[in-house]
Nucleic acid binder design. Structure first.
Lengths: 257, 257
DNA sequence: GGTTTAAATTGATTTAGCTCAACTGTTCTG
DNA sequence: CAGAACAGTTGAGCTAAATCAATTTAAACC
């Protein structure tokens, strides 16, 4: 994972090699779908700031911090969470390599959640004002940013449906599949991965009790869907897991009509 | 409500009068926070298309339709919903005057949900490609669009917390307060309003059974929080309703820690 | 390397809210 | 205007998942 991001490391490379490199770059979401020419990519590269990796438990930003940049995860992972009125932590998302963090702060110009590293995690800073300047000159870039945000809205709405309506087993199965899918997009194994987040975080995120999540992991393993060893998960029966997620008997999920 | 949108009706007006008019215009979300000069506002005005009002039950767009425009509700209201795998309707939002609809379609260039009028409803079409052109020339406009989308992400995430974690009574109390707040922003009564959506839609949206919603309305009325007569709702005890929404004993909501 | 602390698991019990069912009021339709 | 179809309400019982409690396992720290 380290040094994966070619556009940040070398200056003079051919466009085709950039695009291959970008496949594994944390910014491919932003730049790959564009037809950026060499100098555009150089410009984009120039505004990006690197920083030393975050240690587990370290915050990338905290709720209330002024918004200055959006962040692309290069390696490792983060959770974002807000604090509810009564001081409880509320996990709003997990962020894996290549994903952008901090988009929700554009409106308020302050971060509304805290982003904390779940393991040693390396991110790129993309200063927002400079990205805006660049966006004014590269028309496709601004549009791409809108597109990414639109996708985020869409995904959040999907998730809302899950959280509002689905049973505990559907929620966990669905989360595992979504994580698997996100790893796949990064060319990692779809079947086997490490969950960097704790059971408590998972439970919190899914709106379940820790005990329920723990029991589900045990049950999924007993039923041969998974092999679980602490954080390490192997999906043994992808089809069955998928069936569990899109539970046919989700007639039995809350409310018909 | 009809003809409220001065920027769409008259051409030659002073900036100050525009800003007053925009207070009650369905597009104020988009243009008010900007320092648009006269000609900018005229340009924005020029791209907006009006259409005949939608009748109750009529669709503004359907899931799968190509994305061409975003829409601003001028009067009336809409619900948006998707169809889940098993054909169930899933309400993803209610849209009141001044709110924008269709932002989630930018990514896919197709609408991902259906928008249906809950009553006679009038909207403005804002063709997206023309808005983009305009955005390229008016820097603040593009940024404002990003800001609106960012806010939508934020609100959806807030909602996720509610749906994932909150009890039935907290959900309904919260919905009523949010609707009240949205009416207030439009200078309507915060205490008294008509719910244009059915109990079934509310239940669906909140991830509850219709029976539960109905029982809650009865209970809230019995407890003196509300006066309910079919669709007509009067909030009798705003404080108590607020307390119910941010339930102090939401320690008892799913999962501690 | 042993002790402390936190995370995860498992079991027993309770409960919020769903389901099923019966009934009432309302709004469409011929 | 009647009757059908639908939307809403209310009651009784059931079930999925929360809570409480106890134990096991793993990580953190001196």
């Amino acid at each position: 994972m380290e040094g994966c991001c070619t556009i940040m490391n070398s200056r003079v490379i051919s466009l085709s090699s950039i695009q291959v490199a970008c496949e594994t770059c944390s910014l491919h979401q932003l730049c790959l779908p564009l037809e950026l020419n060499h100098s555009d990519i150089e410009e984009l590269e120039r505004i990006i700031r690197r920083r030393r990796p975050l240690q587990r438990g370290e915050n990338l930003f905290q709720a209330g911090d002024p918004f200055t940049a959006i962040y692309a995860v290069r390696s490792g992972s983060l959770k974002t969470f807000t604090n509810t009125d009564d001081g409880q932590e509320q996990v709003t998302g997990f962020h894996l390599p290549s994903e952008l963090v901090g988009l929700d702060a554009i409106t308020t110009e302050r971060h509304n959640c805290t982003a904390r590293a779940l393991e040693t995690t390396s991110v790129c800073d993309i200063p927002f004002n400079r990205l805006q300047e660049l966006g004014a000159r590269i028309p496709g870039l601004q549009r791409q940013l809108l597109r990414i945000m639109s996708r985020e809205i869409l995904e959040d709405q999907d998730l809302m449906i899950w959280l509002g309506k689905k049973s505990a087993e559907e929620r966990l199965a669905s989360l595992l599949l979504r994580i698997s899918k996100r790893f796949t997009e990064r060319n990692f194994s779809a079947r086997e991965f490490n969950l960097s987040m704790s059971r408590t975080d998972i439970a919190n995120y899914l709106g379940l009790a820790v005990e329920t999540v723990s029991r589900l992991f045990s049950r999924f393993q007993a039923e041969g869907l998974l092999s679980v060893d602490r954080k390490h998960v192997v999906i043994e029966d992808m089809d069955a897991l998928q069936q569990m997620a899109h539970n046919e008997s989700s007639n039995n999920s809350r409310n018909r009509a």
